[in-house]
């Protein structure tokens, strides 16, 4: 590493500036600006007048606003929990299995990542079509294996729709977590595991005392990525249950709430641009608090393990 002196300044500036400028102007600044818009009233893209915190007061005191906001928040938490359970926990065990050597393990590792390469939209549409009662692709599979009595109105039932949507997202990104964990497990020194095996450690010992501690940093990354992804997820809702989060807002999450309130006409659930920006700002706050919380939690776990 070279200690930069005066004659390097120009060069450093020219090298850093392009990325710095584009990134600042089209990523960070828009978010800050959007927060500023939350202080204005306005419907179209033109802002009307400065209203201070009025939009926030409206959001939390008027039932027509806060009922939708808290509903989306609650749904989003459920959505996140289901996805985490599948992707993180099931994904972890799947990675443990896939990192054993067996015939076909390389093939499995290869195809497990396949769904992740598709677009969320496509995955949502595929699942929606497969789950439709007519022609009933999935239903006929269930009938064929004798589980016909478990057929539900999948995406039509407010009790099951959110779970189905979460499963669809997990199906898509399951391979990604598996791959992250598998690469973490691959990185563990073989001699440690060998030594443990000689000491008579069972597979469970191996998992909890060797594998889990060493992939903990990956657990934290995966969790945080899932958290951010889920709290801004939109495509899957658009594809599977429309931007209204059908049925009856039971699958309305932050992403769809933001889109609908900001961009829809009033008659279809629009709240105007100012209120839309307010929703975006609240989403940002929730994401920021969540990420900070997870970072603190995983850091403490790491220290505890050390």
């Amino acid at each position: 590493m070279l200690i930069a002196n005066k004659k390097h300044w120009k060069f450093l500036f020219i090298f850093i500036f392009p990325a710095f400028a584009v990134y600042t102007l089209f990523m960070l600044l828009p978010i800050l600006n959007s927060m500023r818009y939350s202080l204005f009233s306005g419907d179209g893209l033109a802002l009307n007048e400065f209203v201070g915190l009025d939009n926030y007061i409206k959001l939390f005191t008027e039932e027509r606003y806060y009922s939708k906001f808290w509903n989306a928040f609650g749904n989003n938490i459920q959505f996140f929990i289901i996805v985490t359970l599948i992707q993180n926990i099931l994904g972890f065990f799947m990675a443990v299995l896939l990192t054993r050597t067996f015939k076909g393990s390389r093939f499995m590792r290869k195809i497990s990542f396949l769904p992740t390469t598709l677009s969320v939209l496509v995955v949502g549409f595929i699942f929606k079509l497969i789950l439709q009662p007519y022609p009933g692709v999935f239903d006929s599979v269930l009938k064929a294996i004798g589980l016909g009595k478990f057929i539900l109105p999948w995406l039509g039932d407010p009790n099951s729709a959110l779970v189905i949507v979460a499963v669809a997202v997990s199906w898509q990104f399951f391979g990604e977590s598996v791959m992250f964990y598998a690469s973490g497990i691959d990185g563990i020194d073989d001699s440690i595991i060998e030594a443990a095996k000689i000491d008579g450690a069972t597979i469970w010992h191996e998992i909890f005392y060797i594998i889990l501690p060493s992939v903990l940093p990956i657990v934290s990354i995966v969790t945080i990525l899932i958290f951010i992804g889920d709290f801004t997820q939109f495509d899957i809702i658009y594809a599977m249950t429309s931007t209204k989060g059908d049925p009856g807002y039971s699958t309305d999450i932050f992403g769809s709430l933001f889109y609908r309130t900001t961009f829809s006409s009033a008659e279809r659930g629009g709240w105007g641009t100012g209120m839309g920006a307010t929703v975006a700002t609240m989403m940002f706050i929730v994401v920021a608090i969540g990420v900070a919380g997870f970072l603190a939690f995983f850091n403490r776990r790491k220290e505890a393990l050390n």
């Binding site: 407010p158 049925p247 009856g248 807002y249 309130t261 009033a266 008659e267 279809r268 659930g269 629009g270």
Partner: peptide, 23 residues
């Protein structure tokens, strides 16, 4: 009755949907 959110149009549909779902 559908000039603002929640619009009458949306509400009647939602209410009947929830009524059929026994919610």
């Amino acid at each position: 009755l559908s000039a603002q959110d929640p619009s009458g149009n949306a509400l009647v549909g939602e209410a009947i949907q929830l009524m059929y779902a026994d919610t």
